[in-house]
């Protein structure tokens, strides 16, 4: 077996483990920890909808289904690997096989996205239930550089500009270009604008979770800002590397590069969230019933 093939199998195996086993397991254990340690009786604001015996049973069965779906997707991945080994597959020397890596990745991230949507719906329910009462806010402005070093932001901007210059240098500076050039430039620009919008929304936008403690919100904003800037840097580096790979006719590495790129994004994205916002350190006292105000 060639070194390229061995590398491909190792990277694909790591993708299966990281995205379909490791992170879903962390997400599941996090939710189970919250359900176990913060029951609806003591923390009613955490459960905007009635949480009776049947709701608890449904939640636990949903978590089991979530685990099983991820394991099933991991099994599909392993099946693909076994099939590739048995059929003597090797990445096409002219590239193009990265599309299969991306298609499998889409399948892998679907349950994670579903979990995110459910979390968003939970926050939405909390916001709907949070009518009246008192609202709190800090009188301190939040700026981008309170959460990340300006050097990283500068690096992200420089790499974005660097990629555009490098790409146009490669394709020739004189317009008109092929449609692929416009799509690539529009794609990376749109992606960076999306990251900028996501960061701005978290910095000055409405709180997703209306009860979140101030220190937890700051940690969450820091995580989002770092993920956004890091993802922008990683995207530019990835595109520069794939352009170099194409230029020097090393397209055989495209599937490995694509898989590595998405694994790094997931590791530093979800991984950073798990490291920065540890569930054991989150202030859950905000979900307790409001104490009645005794007039003085």
């Amino acid at each position: 077996m060639s070194a390229i093939l061995l590398l491909f199998y190792a990277v694909f195996l790591s993708q299966i483990f990281l995205i379909s086993i490791y992170f879903p397991m962390k997400i599941r254990s996090r939710i189970l920890y919250v359900i176990k340690n913060y029951p609806p009786k003591e923390y009613p604001k955490l459960y905007p909808k009635p949480y009776d015996f049947y709701a608890e049973k449904a939640a636990k069965s949903g978590l089991s289904t979530y685990r099983n779906i991820n394991l099933f997707i991991a099994a599909i991945g392993l099946g693909i690997l076994v099939w590739a080994l048995a059929s003597g597959y090797s990445p096409h020397p002219l590239g193009g096989d990265e599309i299969f890596v991306m298609l499998y990745l889409l399948l892998q991230v679907a349950p994670i996205l579903y979990a995110e949507i459910r979390t968003f719906k939970l926050y939405w329910g909390m916001r709907e239930a949070n009518v009246g009462g008192s609202r709190k806010a800090e009188l301190n402005p939040r700026n981008l550089f309170d959460f990340i070093s300006p050097a990283f932001v500068a690096l992200a901007v420089l790499l974005y500009a660097g990629f555009i210059v490098f790409y146009l240098y490669d394709k020739g500076f004189t317009a008109p270009w092929e449609w692929e050039v416009y799509v690539t430039i529009a794609g990376i620009t749109g992606m960076n604008l999306l990251f900028a919008g996501m960061i701005a929304k978290h910095l000055v936008g409405k709180k997703l979770n209306p009860h979140q403690a101030h220190k937890d919100r700051l940690r969450q904003i820091e995580t989002i800002v770092k993920i956004g800037i890091f993802a922008s840097i990683a995207a530019s580096v990835f595109l520069i590397l794939t352009s170099l790979v194409d230029k020097y006719e090393l397209e055989v590495f495209d599937p490995v590069l694509t898989s590595l790129y998405f694994q790094i994004i997931t590791f530093f994205g979800l991984g950073l969230e798990f490291r920065t916002v540890k569930v054991e350190t989150v202030d859950f006292s905000v979900y307790k019933e409001d104490k009645p105000v005794i007039p003085t």
Binding site: A137, E138, K206
Partner: peptide, 25 residues
């Protein structure tokens, strides 16, 4: 906050948008 010396001259305040969103107003 000013009278209690919690914030003083020259201290920055949040933008209108930030404060409005934080207070849900």
């Amino acid at each position: 906050a000013i009278l209690c010396d919690k914030i003083g001259p020259g201290d920055a305040l949040p933008s209108i948008r930030q404060l409005a969103n934080d207070l849900g107003m």
